[in-house]
Simulated scan of single mutants.
Amino acid sequence: MELPTGYVTALDAMNRHVNSARPDAPVQVERARPALLTSTRRAAAVALHRLADRIQPRPVPAAPRCS
């Protein structure tokens, strides 16, 4: 082989990739993060909903029909 370093690097990367999908592979536990700015997000959502209700076009009233 002309580039033995590349061959070794490729084998190492392939082994890490194949072994990572195994059922007994080491797993990193995902830690639950506390919710940040919950009250600010809720206030922004309320304000945006109120703004959307004001901006939304109202339906045109139906014209009276003679029968």
Rank of each mutant, 00 (worst) to 15 (best):
Q56I: 08
V8D: 00
A43K: 13
E30F: 02
L36R: 15
A44Q: 15
N19R: 07
V46N: 02
M14Q: 09
H49S: 14
L37Q: 09
S39L: 13
L48T: 09
H49K: 12
V8C: 01
S39Q: 15
D53P: 01
A43H: 02
P57E: 03
Q28C: 05
N19Q: 06
P61H: 11
P23D: 08
Y7M: 13
Y7Q: 12
A47H: 10
P23Q: 12
R16I: 02
D53W: 01
S67F: 08
A45F: 13
P57H: 03
P59S: 10
T38C: 10
A62V: 07
A52P: 00
R65N: 03
A13S: 12
N15C: 11
G6H: 05
R33A: 14
A47N: 12
R16A: 08
A13V: 00
V27T: 04
D12Q: 10
P34R: 10
P23G: 08
V8S: 00
R42F: 05
V18M: 04
D12A: 13
V18A: 08
A10K: 01
V29Q: 10
V27M: 03
P34A: 09
R42D: 08
A35T: 04
V29D: 12
R65T: 05
A47E: 14
D53T: 13
V27N: 00
D53K: 05
A52M: 05
L36G: 02
R22D: 11
Q28G: 00
P59R: 14
A35N: 06
P23R: 14
P57K: 05
P64H: 15
D53R: 08
S39K: 14
P4Q: 00
T5K: 07
A63C: 01
I55W: 11
M1S: 14
V46I: 10
E30D: 04
L3Y: 13
P57N: 00
H49P: 08
V29R: 11
R31K: 10
T9D: 14
H49V: 15
L11S: 05
A25I: 02
A63P: 04
R54W: 14
V27Q: 04
Y7S: 13
R65C: 05
N15F: 05
A43T: 12
D24C: 01
P59H: 11
T40I: 14
G6W: 06
I55L: 08
M1G: 07
I55H: 01
N19M: 03
L37Y: 06
A52V: 03
R22N: 10
M14A: 15
V29T: 11
V29M: 14
Q56H: 11
V29L: 07
A35Y: 01
L3M: 06
A32V: 04
A32T: 03
A32Y: 00
N15Q: 09
A21C: 12
L3C: 13
R16M: 13
Q56W: 11
T9I: 12
V60G: 07
P64M: 09
H17A: 13
V46S: 05
V8N: 00
T38L: 12
V29H: 09
Q56E: 07
S20A: 06
E2Y: 11
A21I: 09
T38F: 08
D12F: 14
R31D: 02
N15W: 05
D53G: 04
L51F: 12
P34V: 03
V27P: 00
A13C: 02
L36D: 01
A43N: 03
P23L: 12
R50E: 11
L11F: 04
R65I: 08
N19K: 06
M14D: 07
P4I: 00
P26T: 03
S20M: 00
V8T: 00
